[in-house]
Design a protein around this nucleic acid. Structure first.
Length: 1118
RNA sequence: GGGCCUGUAGCUCAGGUGGUUAGAGCGCUACACUGAUAAUGUAGAGGUCCGUGGUUCGAGUCCACGCAGGCCCA
C-alpha cells in the first residue's frame, strides 16, 4: 500500500466497505483494543438487554442495536472504558411453544409422551437455533458487543445468581405465596392457560341466570348526601352479575370515576317496598319505563312501577361509601364492603357498577389488592385459607344455605327437568325474598368452557408466588425520578404511572423450561426452605442422603433445571421430607437479574460487579417498559436500594413504509441482511437515527436509506475524492507546519468556525442522548457548509498550478489543511453512527499524514472544541453572503440571465454601518459566486432609499396588548419623517385610541424593501437590487466564458489530463465574437491550459459548437 | 375501557419560553452549471399546521373536548 498517496476510488460501494472494514477490525482486534486501551480509565457501563436466538434477526434489531452501539462507541471515544458483555435470553414460553409445535405435542404430553428431561433438552437446543445468524448479524451491522463471553440465562452460574437473589427476597420476607385468579376447570381439576382458553370452541353461548342485586348503603357522613331528599327510604346500590354464585364472596363494588350516576326513587318489584337506587345515568332507561303512575299513588302489586330521578352525581362521589354485606356468611374486616374506582367499569351493560369478588375474578382481584380489600376466605381442615368454593366446584360448609352445592352443573343434571334449579337460581330466589334482588332474568352470553371436559370454567384462585413489590412502591417511585428517561414521558407517564399502581409481582409459572423456584416445603406446608446457592443445595442433599431420603449426593455438574431439581428431597428440622414447590419463575426475573447474574455475583467477580453497577446506559423498545425496564428497576431498588440504570432510551417500533406492523406472515418484513449488503450498514444506521427520533416509531422506507447513501455518504465521499485527487497531484501529506492564521482566507476561518460549532453541537447532543440531533447536524454541515459552499467556493485554490514548495503556495497549503481537518473531524463525529465508512475515511486520511497514532477512528479520541476558533460574527457574515447570493441568483433567474454572463453591479440598501462592514468582509465571495463586478451600498444620502417600519410585536405586545392591532397598523404606515425621528434616537409620540404611546427605535424594525426603478428581491432584512444592463464589454466577456466552457468540455471529451497543454484554433465568426476572442485571449488561454489561441479564416476539420445563437467552429491541438 | 406516544406540503421530518411571509430534504416541473461529473445549483408549483371550542391584541405553539393511527395494559 502506497502510504504517500491518498487512496482514490472509482466509485464506492458501502456494502463492500462494510465487509472490508469488518475484516480489518477482526484482523487487528480493534474492538478488543478499544476496550483494552482504556484500561484504568473511568468506566461507562452498558447493559445488554439479551435477545432470544430462537428467531432470526429483523430490521428492527438494527434500530435497537444502533441506538445501543452509538453511545458505547461515543463514550469510548470520549476516553471511557466501555465493557459490554453480550447475552442471550433463553428461558420461557415462546421457546416452549416453538418446541411443542415442532414436536406436534401439547403441554399435557410433557411427562407422558416425552420426558421432562428430553423436552428441556429440546428447548435448550431450540433456543440457540439461530445463534449463528445472530452473530453474523451483529458483526455485519457493526454492533460492538462481547460475543465471546456472553451471559446465558440457562447456564448454571447464571441460575445460581438468580437463586441467590430469590433467597435475598425470601430472607427479607418479600417472597410469599398467595394466589392469583386463573381460569380453572373444576371438572378436570386443573388450571388452564390463556393459550388453552383460546382453543376454538372454548367460548360458547350459554343462558345463565343474571341478577341485579341491591346493596344497602351504610348511612354515615360519606353517604349522607344520598339521603338529602328522603331520609326515610333506604338507599341501595345496584350491581349486576351473570354469576350469582359469586355474590357470597362479594367484598367491594367498583364504579367508573368519570361515569355519571343518579339516585332513583322507586319500588322493588318483588317485595313492593319503597327503595332509593343508585345506578349509571345512561342505563336508567334500561330498567325503568315511563308510567302514569306516581310514587304517591303506587299500590303494592301495581304492574306499572313509578320512578323519579332524585339527584345526579359522578362516580367520584360514590368512592369510599360503605354498604352492608349482601350475603353475610363469612364476616370480613374493613375496608371490605366499600365502593372503589375501577378502570374496567363501563355503561355498556348492567348498572355501571360492578360487583367484585376478590377470589373469583381477575379484575376483581387486582382492584381489591390495589385498595387493600380482603377476599372472602375460610379456613380448611388444615387451617389453610381457601375460597368459599372448593376445588370440585362446591360451596364450603360455611355457606350454610348452599353448602355442598355445585356452583355450576358439574354433575350432568338434567337441565330440562322442570324441577331442576341451578344454584344461581336458588340464590336469586333467596335474594328476592330478602329485598336484595332488583331484577332477575335469563341472560345469554359467551362463556369459556374446558376443552377437555366441556364444562364451564371458573375463574378461581390458584396458588402463586409473589414478590412483594408493593412494600417498596414509594421507594421505587422515588428512585425512578433519578433516572434520565428518553423520552421523559415514558419515565413519568408510562413507567411512572405503572409504578404508582403497582401490584405484587407474580413470579410463578407452571411450565418446564425455566429457572425453578428454589423453595422446598414439607407436605403439611408447616416448614419451608429457600435455597440460595448450589453449595447450599449440595450440603442439604448430603443431609438427605444420610437420612436415606436420597440415594446419592449431588454431582458437581448437577443441572438446576427440571426434572433433576424436582428429584431433590430435603430434610426438615424435625426430620420430615421436603419437596420442591413445582413452579418456575417468570423469565423476566431472569433478565432483570442480569446485572448480577452476568458476573455470577456474589459467587465470583464481586469487584467487577461493583464497578459495573448500576448501568450508565441501557436502551430497549418501549414495549419493555413493564418487562425488562421494570424487572431491572425492581430488583435493584428492592435488594440494593439503587437504580439499575441512570440513562435509558426507550425506542419505538419499526413499521413498514405505510405505517403497518412488519410481519413475516404478511410479507412486509424487511430482511436486514439484504438491506445492509446492498446499501451498507452505515447508510441503514444513519437513516434510522437521522430520519426520526428513536423514540418515535420509524416508518422504514428503503428509499430513505438510498437517499441517505446518495446525499450524505455520496457527498462526503465526493468531497474526499476531490481532496484526494488534488492532494495527490500536489503531493500534499500534511507534513509542513500549520498554516499561519493570516494565510487563511476568510472562508477557511469560516469553515473552521463552523466545524468547531459542529463539534460542540454534536458532543452536547450525544451527551444528552439525542442522537438524531447529532446526525442531522453532521449531515447539514457536510452537505451545505462543506461541500456546497466551502469546496465550491474554493475549488480554484486547489487547481492553482503553484507547486507546494514555492512561497505562492501558502494559500494552497492553507486550503488543503483546512479541508483535511474538516474531513478528519467529520470522520470522528460520524464514527459512532457510521462506524465502517468513518473508519475508512479516517484511515485513508491518517495513513498518509500520520498525524495521529491510532490504527482506527474507534481507537482515537473525540475531537475537542477550540472555542477560540468559533467566530459567530464570521458565521453571520457568511450567512449574509449566502443570502445575498441566493437573492441575486433568483433575480438573474427572473431576468433569464445566466450566471456565466457577467454583470456590472448589485445594489444593497444599508440601514446600519455594521451591516455594511459585515457584507464588505465577504464581498469577494459574493462577487465570485454571482459573477458581478461591483457591490454598491446605498444609504440614506443616496436619496433613493424607501424605508418602512415594522412593529416589534414581541416587545410591544407585552406593553400594549389590546392596542396592538391599531398600533401595528400605524407603525406600518409611518413615513420617512417619522422613521427618521426614531433613527435619530428620539421618542416618537403616537396616539392609539385614547392613549398616547411613546416609541423608540427598539420598538420597531426598519427595513428597506424597495428601490424604485430597480429589480429587487428580499429575504428577511436583506434587500438586493441587480443592474441588468449588459454592455458590449460584458457581452464579450460572457462569450469568452462560454468559449472556455465549451473548450473544457472538448478537452474532457478528448480524454485530456488536467495538466495537458493545448492549442486552440477558432474559425472567424461575426464581429462581436471575434472581438470577444481577441480581447479575452489571455483569459481563455489561462483557463483552458492553452498555449495559443488562433483565429483562422476558415477551418475545415473543426468541431461545431453551439452557444445560444452563436455557432462556432473550433479545433483543439495537443 | 385506562395510560403513553404520534398527527405540519404527495412522502419523511424541523418548527426553545405564543409575535404576523410556517421551513428542509425527497418527489414533481422548468432552467442553469459542468476539470468534484453516474456529481451539483437555482427557481416554481404544492399547506384547512387532524377537527371543534376556549384563553389572548395575537395560537402550528397554551387549555378543554373530540377524531384517526400506534404501543402497552385490561
Amino acid at each position: 500500500m502506497d502510504k504517500t498517496r491518498y487512496k482514490e476510488y472509482k466509485s464506492i460501494d458501502l456494502g463492500q466497505v462494510g465487509e472490508e472494514v469488518l475484516a480489518f477490525w477482526l484482523k487487528n482486534r480493534i474492538f478488543e483494543r478499544s476496550v483494552e486501551e482504556r484500561e484504568g480509565a473511568e468506566t461507562f457501563t452498558f447493559y445488554e438487554g439479551p435477545p432470544s436466538a430462537n428467531g432470526t434477526p429483523g430490521i428492527h434489531h438494527v434500530m435497537a442495536r444502533t441506538v445501543k452501539d452509538i453511545f458505547c462507541r461515543y463514550k469510548t471515544m470520549k476516553g471511557y472504558q466501555v465493557k459490554r458483555k453480550g447475552g442471550w435470553d433463553t428461558h420461557g414460553l415462546p421457546v416452549e411453544l416453538q418446541v411443542e409445535k415442532e414436536l406436534g405435542i401439547t403441554k399435557d404430553d410433557i411427562g407422558t409422551k416425552i420426558s421432562v428431561a428430553d423436552y428441556n433438552e429440546k428447548c435448550r437446543n431450540a433456543v440457540m437455533k439461530y445463534k449463528d445468524d445472530w452473530d453474523r448479524f451483529t458483526q455485519e451491522m457493526g454492533y460492538w458487543v462481547d460475543l465471546d463471553n456472553p451471559y446465558i440465562t440457562f447456564e448454571r452460574s447464571y441460575m445460581e445468581s438468580v437463586w441467590y437473589l430469590l433467597k435475598s427476597f425470601y430472607q427479607k420476607g418479600l417472597l410469599y405465596k398467595g394466589y392469583t385468579i386463573q381460569p380453572y376447570s373444576p371438572a378436570a381439576g386443573t388450571g388452564l392457560s390463556s393459550h388453552e382458553l383460546n382453543q376454538p370452541g372454548c367460548y360458547r353461548m350459554v343462558k345463565d341466570t343474571s341478577i341485579v342485586a341491591q346493596f344497602q348503603v351504610e348511612r354515615n357522613e360519606r353517604s349522607e348526601f344520598l339521603y338529602k331528599f328522603d331520609d326515610q327510604v333506604p338507599v341501595y346500590i345496584l350491581a349486576w352479575t351473570t354469576t350469582p354464585w359469586t355474590l357470597p364472596a362479594n367484598s367491594a363494588l367498583a364504579v367508573g370515576s368519570k361515569i355519571q350516576y343518579v339516585l332513583v326513587r322507586t319500588f322493588n318489584q318483588y317485595t313492593h317496598e319503597p327503595v332509593q337506587l343508585v345506578l349509571a345515568k345512561d342505563l336508567v332507561s334500561r330498567y325503568f319505563t315511563a308510567t302514569e303512575n306516581t310514587i304517591e299513588d303506587y299500590q303494592p302489586g301495581d304492574k306499572d312501577i313509578p320512578y323519579s330521578l332524585i339527584q345526579e352525581f359522578s362516580g367520584k362521589d360514590l368512592i369510599g361509601i360503605d354498604y352492608q354485606q349482601l350475603m353475610p356468611y363469612v364476616p370480613l374486616d374493613k375496608p371490605a364492603f366499600t365502593v372503589v374506582p375501577g378502570d374496567f367499569v363501563t355503561t355498556e351493560e348492567g348498572t355501571g357498577i360492578v360487583h367484585l369478588s376478590k377470589t373469583f375474578g381477575a379484575d376483581d382481584y387486582r382492584t381489591c389488592e390495589q385498595y387493600g380489600i380482603p377476599g372472602v376466605l375460610v379456613k380448611d381442615s388444615e387451617g389453610k385459607e381457601v375460597p368459599i368454593v372448593d376445588k370440585k366446584g362446591r360451596f364450603v360448609d360455611e355457606i350454610t344455605d348452599f353448602a355442598g352445592m355445585y356452583v355450576k352443573n358439574y354433575q350432568d343434571e338434567d337441565e330440562s327437568d322442570p324441577n331442576y334449579r341451578s344454584t344461581d337460581v336458588l340464590i336469586s330466589i333467596k335474594l328476592k325474598e330478602e329485598n336484595k334482588a332488583f331484577k332477575v332474568e335469563k341472560y345469554e352470553h359467551s362463556y369459556p368452557h374446558c376443552w377437555r371436559t366441556d364444562k364451564p370454567v371458573l375463574y378461581y384462585p390458584l396458588d402463586s408466588w409473589f414478590i412483594k413489590t408493593t412494600a417498596f412502591k414509594d421507594r421505587l417511585v422515588e428512585l425512578n425520578q433519578k433516572i434520565n428517561w428518553k423520552p421523559a414521558s415514558t419515565g413519568t407517564g408510562r413507567f411512572g404511572n405503572w409504578l404508582e399502581n403497582l401490584v405484587d409481582w407474580n413470579l410463578s409459572r407452571s411450565r418446564f423450561w425455566g429457572t425453578p423456584l428454589p423453595i422446598w416445603k414439607t407436605e403439611d406446608s408447616k416448614e419451608e426452605r429457600c435455597i440460595g446457592s448450589f453449595q447450599e443445595l449440595k450440603e442439604a442433599v448430603e443431609v438427605s442422603v444420610a437420612k436415606g431420603f436420597m440415594d446419592n449426593p449431588l454431582p458437581e455438574d448437577f443441572d438446576l433445571h427440571r426434572p433433576y431439581v424436582d428429584e431433590v428431597v430435603l430434610v426438615s428440622t424435625n426430620g420430615e421430607r421436603m419437596f420442591r414447590e413445582p413452579d418456575l419463575i417468570d423469565v423476566w426475573f431472569d433478565s432483570g437479574a442480569m446485572p448480577y447474574a452476568q458476573w455470577h455475583y456474589p459467587f465470583q467477580n464481586e469487584g467487577t460487579f461493583e464497578t459495573a453497577f448500576p448501568a450508565d446506559y441501557i436502551a430497549e423498545g418501549v414495549d419493555q417498559t413493564r418487562g425488562w425496564f421494570f424487572t431491572l428497576h425492581a430488583i435493584a431498588g428492592m435488594l440494593f436500594d439503587s437504580v439499575a440504570f441512570k440513562n435509558v432510551i426507550a425506542h419505538g417500533l419499526v413499521l413498514d413504509k405505510n405505517g403497518n406492523k412488519m410481519s413475516k406472515r404478511l410479507g412486509n418484513a424487511v430482511d436486514p441482511f439484504d438491506t445492509m449488503n446492498s446499501l451498507g450498514a452505515d447508510a441503514t444506521r444513519w437513516y434510522m437515527i437521522g430520519n426520526a427520533n428513536p423514540w418515535d416509531n420509524l416508518k422504514f422506507d428503503i428509499a430513505g436509506v438510498e437517499e441517505v447513501k446518495r446525499r450524505f455518504f455520496g457527498t462526503l465521499q465526493n468531497t474526499y475524492a476531490f481532496f484526494a485527487l488534488y492532494a495527490n497531484i500536489d503531493g500534499f501529506q500534511y507534513q509542513e507546519d500549520e498554516a499561519a492564521p493570516e494565510h487563511l482566507k476568510e472562508s477557511d476561518h469560516w469553515i473552521i468556525s463552523r466545524l468547531n460549532s459542529l463539534i460542540k453541537d454534536v458532543d452536547a447532543s450525544f451527551e444528552e442522548y439525542e442522537p438524531t440531533r447529532a446526525v442531522r447536524a453532521i449531515q447539514d454541515f457536510v452537505i451545505d457548509d462543506l461541500s456546497n459552499w466551502y469546496v465550491r467556493l474554493n475549488r480554484k485554490r486547489f487547481w492553482d498550478p503553484a507547486s507546494l514548495e514555492t512561497k505562492a503556495s501558502l494559500d494552497k497549503v492553507a486550503a488543503y489543511q483546512t479541508l483535511y481537518k474538516c474531513l478528519k473531524v467529520v470522520a470522528k463525529l460520524s464514527a459512532s453512527v457510521a462506524p465502517f465508512y468513518a473508519d475508512l475515511l479516517y484511515r485513508d486520511l491518517n495513513t498518509v499524514s500520520g498525524r495521529e497514532s491510532h490504527d482506527s477512528v474507534h481507537l482515537s479520541l473525540f475531537p475537542e472544541v477550540e472555542e477560540s476558533n468559533i467566530n459567530l460574527d464570521l458565521e453571520a457574515k457568511m450567512r449574509l453572503a449566502q443570502q445575498i447570493s441566493s437573492l441575486v441568483h433568483s433575480l438573474r433567474k427572473k431576468h433569464r440571465i445566466k450566471v456565466r454572463q457577467p454583470l456590472t453591479k448589485i445594489l444593497i440598501p444599508i440601514l446600519r454601518e455594521s451591516t455594511k462592514h459585515q457584507i464588505q468582509a465577504v464581498e469577494e465571495l459574493i462577487k465570485w459566486e454571482v459573477n458581478v463586478k461591483e457591490i454598491e451600498y446605498v444609504d440614506d444620502t443616496s436619496g433613493i432609499l424607501v424605508k418602512k417600519a415594522k412593529p416589534n410585536f414581541r416587545k410591544l405586545g407585552q406593553l400594549y396588548g389590546p392596542l396592538m392591532k391599531e398600533l401595528g397598523q400605524k407603525i406600518r404606515n409611518f413615513h420617512h419623517d417619522e422613521i427618521q425621528v426614531l433613527e435619530q434616537g428620539s421618542q416618537l409620540e403616537v396616539h392609539v385610541g385614547d392613549q398616547t404611546v411613546y416609541l423608540t427605535e427598539e420598538d420597531v424594525e426598519i427595513v428597506s424593501e424597495d428601490i424604485p426603478g430597480w429589480s429587487v428581491a428580499n429575504e428577511g432584512a436583506i434587500t438586493v437590487a441587480l443592474d441588468i444592463t449588459i454592455t458590449e464589454d460584458l457581452k464579450q466577456e460572457g462569450i469568452a466564458r462560454d468559449v472556455v466552457n465549451r473548450v473544457q468540455n472538448l478537452r474532457k471529451e478528448m480524454g485530456l489530463n488536467v495538466q495537458d497543454k493545448i492549442n486552440i484554433v477558432i474559425e472567424k465568426n461575426n464581429n462581436l465574437v471575434n472581438r470577444a476572442l481577441e480581447s479575452n485571449q489571455e483569459y481563455i488561454c489561462k483557463e483552458t491550459q492553452a498555449l495559443s489561441l488562433e483565429i483562422a479564416e476558415e477551418l475545415t476539420d473543426g468541431k461545431l459548437l453551439e452557444m445560444d445563437d452563436i455557432k462556432l467552429k473550433v479545433k483543439i491541438g495537443v
